[in-house]
């Protein structure tokens, strides 16, 4: 980026683009017909209905619980594993290609194994979500720790910082921006994993609502649930992106 445009222009352009997408959606729904593709207004109305119904609350709570546990496992597990692999150079060299290969695998093929191990229910969803999220978090953390500039570590050593001081004042601030980027990717994939887990062999959760609506060809519910999911995912992701960019900018200035 050469220079930053004024804020009103940046937000204005993004809003105009969103408005354009909504108009496109409206046109498509006019063209394909209401029963094939629900328009924006009807989708919003159905989404409001869903949000107010007690049944949907149960499903949403179930999904959020699974997502919460899975995120916790993925974030902490990835952070721990990534830090260890980043500090131990040889272990990192051994593990990185394996991790990258695992990242590219369609993990859904392994879902039946997880179902056989954990049984039907919450633990399987949590495990599946966590498996999706933990790999990118590990890869990003590994690279963050590995690429800390050696001069920082030398300064820490020559100032004779205790390990805790070095971690708090040198390692953490230096690696944090990349770690946050990893958590952002991890969040998106964990959500995807939990949803796929709910769509296959499950009786509860937003994924189940979706697959049920797909089976009944209940287009308004599909659109409304997809819309709510997209809004939720985009909001969390946007907040993480904001933190991510702020941290990166701070590091670039320093």
């Amino acid at each position: 980026m050469t220079q930053r445009a004024p804020a009103w222009q940046r937000y204005g352009d993004s809003l105009a683009l969103l408005a354009g997408l909504v108009v496109l959606w409206w046109l498509l729904s006019r063209w394909a017909g209401e029963e094939a593709l629900t328009g924006p207004a009807e989708t919003l109305a159905r989404a409001r209905e869903l949000l107010q119904s007690r049944r949907f609350h149960g499903h949403a709570t179930e999904s959020l619980t699974a997502l919460g546990y899975a995120l916790l496992l993925a974030a902490l597990g990835g952070l721990g594993l990534g830090t260890w692999l980043g500090v131990r150079r040889l272990a990192g060299q051994v593990a990185e290609p394996i991790l990258v290969a695992l990242y590219a695998l369609p993990k859904i093929t392994l879902y039946p194994v997880i179902l056989l191990i954990f049984g039907l229910g919450l633990p399987a969803k949590v495990a599946f979500g966590a498996i999706h999220g933990v790999i990118p978090v590990t890869i990003f953390t590994l690279n963050a720790v590995r690429t800390i500039r050696p001069v920082y570590l030398k300064v820490a050593r020559s100032l004779r910082l205790t390990p805790w001081q070095a971690f708090r004042t040198v390692w953490l601030p230096a690696a944090l921006p990349e770690i946050v980027s990893g958590q952002r990717v991890g969040f998106a994939l964990t959500l995807l994993g939990v949803l796929i887990g709910e769509m296959f062999a499950s009786q509860r959760g937003v994924g189940f609502v979706l697959i049920n609506a797909i089976g009944l060809n209940d287009v308004p519910t599909i659109m409304a649930a997809a819309f709510l999911l997209a809004v939720f995912a985009a909001t969390v992701s946007a907040i993480l992106l904001k933190i991510d960019r702020a941290l990166h900018r701070r590091t670039a200035r320093a």
């Binding site: 969040f187 995807l192 949803l195 796929i196 797909i214 997809a226 995912a233 969390v236 992701s237 992106l241």
Partner: peptide, 12 residues
């Protein structure tokens, strides 16, 4: 934020 949205839901 694109990859946070699951696309399978648009299959039907």
């Amino acid at each position: 934020t694109y990859y946070a949205v699951p696309f399978f839901v648009f299959y039907p």
